[in-house]
């Protein structure tokens, strides 16, 4: 018998770790993985709520999030490959054409 709180806390921790990954890593691929981790953290929270409320809607949401994540990964990786082709690097610090 685990309180929902714990799951939410776990979700928050995972989310923050993912956010840290986005902020401190320079490798675009790892940043991308961190984003996936953040999505996962959200999924955990959703499934926990679904269970607590005894309603399946949360799980359906998770299903859709996974689909979107899959699409996002496909496009995102394609983008990274395209960037690598033109810049020969996936260091996000080098992709700084917006510098003012």
């Amino acid at each position: 018998m685990v309180p929902v709180n714990y799951y939410i806390a776990l979700s928050a921790i995972l989310f923050i770790i993912g956010a840290m990954g986005v902020l401190v890593r320079r490798n675009a691929l790892i940043i991308f993985m961190s984003v996936e981790l953040m999505l996962n953290a959200a999924n955990v929270a959703l499934v926990a709520f679904s269970s607590a409320n005894n309603s399946l809607d949360g799980q359906i949401f998770v299903f859709f999030i996974m689909t979107v994540a899959a699409a996002e990964v496909a496009v995102g990786l394609a983008l990274i490959v395209a960037i690598f082709r033109s810049k020969n690097s996936i260091n996000v610090d080098e992709i700084n054409m917006l510098k003012g």
């Binding site: 401190v24 054409m97 510098k99 003012g100």
Partner: peptide, 17 residues
């Protein structure tokens, strides 16, 4: 103000956070 536009995606993300 220009210094804020440093072109680093990560620092933009930091601002978001």
């Amino acid at each position: 103000l220009r210094r804020m536009q440093n072109g680093f995606v990560r620092s933009y993300a930091l601002s978001v956070l």
